[in-house]
């Protein structure tokens, strides 16, 4: 019985390590943020999940087991949430697309302090040049074909 459990641990941990390998390769090799995100979630969910699964027979029931499973559930929940939010951010073109978050008329945002408009606005114009124009439509529905338009970077 002990040997069977040990073999289970070895197989599961190795499978988990493989998914970390896959996630890393994907993160490095895939061409754009959305596909990289796809690779990342494999490492997040399956990699950590299989490692946790493999370690379960090696730990004490019940407290450590519950903790291990909780860790994995946290990772799943955080991965799903952050993945979706990051995909939204990536679809807008990342962090530098300040303009996509402004209202359509562009220049007049009611900022809380009048000073911001004068001094704080200037660099934004410079940033704008870095954004591909097709990424400027901020309010596309999530399920639109926009998801497939990420430019190869």
């Amino acid at each position: 019985m002990k040997i069977a459990l040990d073999i289970f641990t070895i197989v599961a941990v190795m499978a988990g390590a493989f998914f970390f390998l896959a996630g890393t390769v994907g993160l490095l090799r895939f061409p754009d943020p959305l596909t990289r995100l796809h690779a990342l979630t494999k490492a997040d969910n399956l990699g950590l999940g299989l490692v946790v699964l493999g370690l379960l027979p090696q730990t004490d029931w019940p407290l450590d087991t519950i903790k291990l499973v909780t860790i994995w559930l946290f990772a799943l929940l955080a991965g799903a949430t952050v993945g979706q939010l990051m995909a939204c951010a990536a679809r807008r073109g990342g962090s530098n697309t300040v303009d996509t978050l402004l209202p359509p008329n562009g220049n007049t945002v009611e900022l809380s302090t009048p000073t911001y408009q004068i001094v704080g606005r200037q660099p934004f114009a410079a940033e704008t040049n870095r954004v591909p124009s097709r990424h400027r439509d901020a309010d596309l529905p999530l399920n639109s074909t926009a998801l497939h338009r990420g430019p190869p970077t």
Binding site: L73, T81, L85
Partner: peptide, 17 residues
């Protein structure tokens, strides 16, 4: 939204932890 869902699930467990 998704963040509210996340906080609703995460926060109670996090408080216990």
């Amino acid at each position: 939204g998704i963040l509210a869902y996340f906080a609703r699930v995460m926060a109670p467990v996090g408080i216990i932890v």
